[in-house]
């Protein structure tokens, strides 16, 4: 069993924009590796650094958001490549939850299996969270998966998450391998039942 995840508390970092793809989260050239260690430094690399290594204007470079663990985004975040290197880079940078208007499915699936809640809220709610974080970057944010709400300062905002993903996090079954292997007999029965003509013989 993995750890049950009910509440995540921390400060926030807003990264504005719709359709931020996983190539932008981590450019492909940093995927030439055989472990995920050390990927944190490459998160958002090409929008954080100029070719000469000097800093660009990006929230991940902004000292006001140093130490933030809750990433706040807009629509269709994580679209494109299935690379788990993207949420791995974010996690290793310090992100432990993402709040957005919507997520690409492979990205949110990767987040769940890594134990990173990816919760959604409507556009107005996201704007209010982003504005609150921008005006008070040290303000505490709490994501409560049980209550399905985000608390920012004194305001409490309703969030949603597909029920199976939410329960997997709440039940501590998000690290799915052992849960799946519990059904070994059923797996074997399915393998026998599917009508594959010659099973790759």
């Amino acid at each position: 069993m993995s750890k049950a995840i009910q509440k995540i508390t921390g400060t926030g970092v807003p990264v504005r924009g719709n359709d931020i793809d996983t190539d932008r989260v981590i450019p492909a050239r940093f995927m030439k590796c055989i472990t995920f260690e050390g990927l944190g430094q490459y998160a958002f690399y090409d929008v954080r650094f100029e070719a000469d290594g000097s800093l660009k204007d990006h929230p991940f470079n902004d000292e006001r958001y140093a130490g933030a663990s809750i990433l706040i985004v807009n629509k269709n975040f994580g679209c494109g490549s299935s690379r788990e290197h993207a949420p791995q880079a974010l996690q290793k940078f310090g992100v432990s939850a993402v709040v957005g208007e919507s997520f690409a499915e492979i990205f949110s699936g990767n987040c769940t299996v890594m134990g990173i809640p990816a919760v959604t809220a409507d556009a107005e709610a996201i704007e209010s969270i982003m504005a609150a974080v921008e005006s008070d970057p040290r303000g505490e944010i709490t994501i409560d998966l049980d209550a399905q709400a985000v608390t920012v300062g004194r305001s409490r905002i309703a969030t949603s998450m597909p029920s199976p993903q939410r329960l997997a996090l709440l039940n501590g079954t998000w690290d799915s391998t052992s849960v799946l292997l519990e059904n070994r007999a059923l797996i074997e029965a399915t393998a026998r039942a599917i009508p594959y003509p010659n099973n790759f013989a």
């Binding site: 995920f36 299935s82 690379r83 788990e84 290197h85 949420p87 499915e105 492979i106 699936g109 990767n110 299996v113 890594m114 597909p162 199976p164 993903q165 997997a168 690290d175 799915s176 391998t177 849960v179 799946l180 292997l181 059904n183 070994r184 797996i187 393998a191």
Partner: peptide, 23 residues
Amino acid sequence: AFGIGTSQIRDVLASQTLAMSRP
């Protein structure tokens, strides 16, 4: 047919199955 992340590759190797939500 669909794309998966690396932790899900682990799941397929180990169990030949995935935990999925039905679209």
